[in-house]
């Protein structure tokens, strides 16, 4: 049962991923990405990573995609982006062909590497669950505490950077567009 669900969700995640790339309007791309992330979250759940599934929904679907939606709506790209891209037929150009060849090549290499890796059979019993929240917290604040602190500095730097980007623009507008 869980196996069938996994393969169905895998196919759905890949189809939604293709939807992100091939959708005409950025809004449809975001919604496809949302579908792909939800499928991946359920796959994490099936694989026993409950906390990761929750983080996937909360952070990816809840925070990052809402940020994307905000920007697309703020810039009003619903139709404009689609028309601009349709006019220069993005699948016809040379760069698009080279890109497609590189992507297919990387996919083939990845599949070959995955299939050649000599794996032992899975020993995890279904339903036991790999990551208890307590165990993850112990790892995060124990062995990985330095990385955890570095991550907090990264977040602080991001906040400062985003505020600096937004604020410089406003000052530039105030003194006549010179930024």
């Amino acid at each position: 049962m869980a196996e069938i669900l996994f393969y169905v969700l895998s196919a759905a995640a890949l189809l939604f991923g293709l939807g992100v790339v091939l959708a005409k309007s950025p809004m449809m791309s975001v919604l496809s990405l949302l579908g792909s992330f939800f499928c991946l979250a359920i796959i994490y759940l099936l694989a026993g990573f409950q906390f990761l599934a929750a983080a996937q929904i909360l952070v990816y679907a809840g925070a990052i995609l809402v940020l994307f939606l905000f920007v697309i709506m703020l810039l009003n790209l619903g139709e404009m982006g689609a028309i601009a891209e349709r006019s220069n037929s993005f699948l016809d150009s040379t760069s698009a062909r080279i890109g497609a060849v590189i992507a297919v090549g990387m996919g083939v290499v990845g599949l070959a590497a995955a299939s050649r890796a000599a794996f032992q059979p899975v020993r995890v019993e279904p339903g036991t669950g790999l990551d208890g929240l307590e165990a993850i917290a112990t790892e995060l604040f124990g062995r990985y505490s330095l990385a955890f602190e570095a991550a907090s500095i990264l977040l602080l730097a991001t906040i400062v950077a985003v505020i600096a980007l937004a604020k410089r623009q406003r000052r530039g507008l105030k003194d006549g567009g010179r930024a």
Binding site: L14, G107, G110
Partner: peptide, 8 residues
């Protein structure tokens, strides 16, 4: 699945 998603 990861390889496919990465290629896409």
């Amino acid at each position: 699945l990861a390889a496919g998603l990465f290629a896409i």
